[in-house]
Amino acid sequence: MVVYADVFIIVNLYIDFFLLWCVRAFLHLEAKGGRLVLGGLFGALCGLISLVPLPAWAALPAGGAGALVAVWGAFWPLPWRRLARAWLCMWLCSFLLAGFFLFLIRFLAPRNMAVLGSALYLDISLPLLFFFTCLAYGLFWAIQRLFPRDASALRLCTLQVCHQGAAVELAAKADTGNALREPFSGLPVIICEEKALKAAVPQPVQDFLTSPCPEAAAHHMRLVPFSSVGGSGLLPAFRPDCVSIKGTGQKLPCYLAVCRSPLSAGQFSALFNPDLFPE
């Protein structure tokens, strides 16, 4: 089979874009389509090394390097741990996709398909590739129109918290299952990680987290009962001076309940119910 470099790059650009899109969806990362295209292009260019004769042992590190470059182009800047997690996820998705294509080659033996190292090559004309691209885009558009997703359930935003001179920003995820309210005032409760709130956490709340004792709760601190799949208990909460959504400026009258356990793998550090805050 004759391999054309331009077709090779375009095919792998499509594939790497799809893999990066899966990584973004699976890890709930924030990256625009243009960044995914850039990462896909980086990965496709790195895939050209598959056309160079290499020893068998070099295929694995070459594939890992290509995945790392693609992830870096799509999601930089990220903390190194989250970047490493995205890289491993990208690599895993690549293995799964490569296994699927090897299955097709083994049992269907298509003459216009080949796996070259860590890259895939399809012997297909560019006009036909463009046609299938438009067809796929049309199908995705139709599916989104016919089966709209609940935007509130997937909403991510940044909360700005101000309390006693301290100001912090929290990456928050909408969770309609969070129906917590402060028992006395009835105000909604936003669950936050202690590490994310930092200096904004009042000392009585910090003391309660260190030594949980309901009798020692200060008068300006509230204990909010909660129940979840993992169990039930009390969360210390306080009324901040101001909470607003960055970008819109919408004020959120609420209490902040503080927990020490992480709420996610680093994608967000607060949970709020948008239905409890009518605009």
Rank of each mutant, 00 (worst) to 15 (best):
D6S: 06
D6T: 02
F8W: 08
V11W: 04
N12G: 05
I15K: 05
V23T: 00
A25F: 08
F26M: 03
L27P: 06
A31S: 15
G43Q: 03
A44C: 03
I49F: 15
L51E: 08
L54A: 10
P55C: 03
G64H: 10
A65D: 07
L68Q: 09
V69P: 06
V71R: 12
V71C: 13
G73K: 06
P79D: 04
R85A: 09
W87P: 01
L88H: 04
C89Q: 07
M90C: 08
W91N: 01
S94A: 15
F95G: 06
G99K: 14
F100T: 14
F107M: 03
P110E: 09
N112G: 11
N112L: 07
A114W: 08
G117E: 09
G117C: 09
A119L: 07
Y121L: 01
L128N: 14
L128K: 14
F132Y: 13
C134E: 13
L135V: 13
R145F: 01
P148C: 01
R149D: 00
L159W: 10
E169N: 02
A171W: 10
K173T: 01
D175H: 05
L180W: 13
P188K: 12
I190G: 12
E193R: 05
A199L: 02
A200N: 02
A200H: 01
V201C: 01
V201H: 02
V201N: 02
P212K: 14
P214D: 08
E215H: 12
A218D: 07
H219Y: 13
S232L: 00
G247K: 10
P253E: 14
C254F: 14
S261P: 03
P262H: 05
L263W: 08
F268G: 01
D275N: 08
L276C: 08
P278G: 04
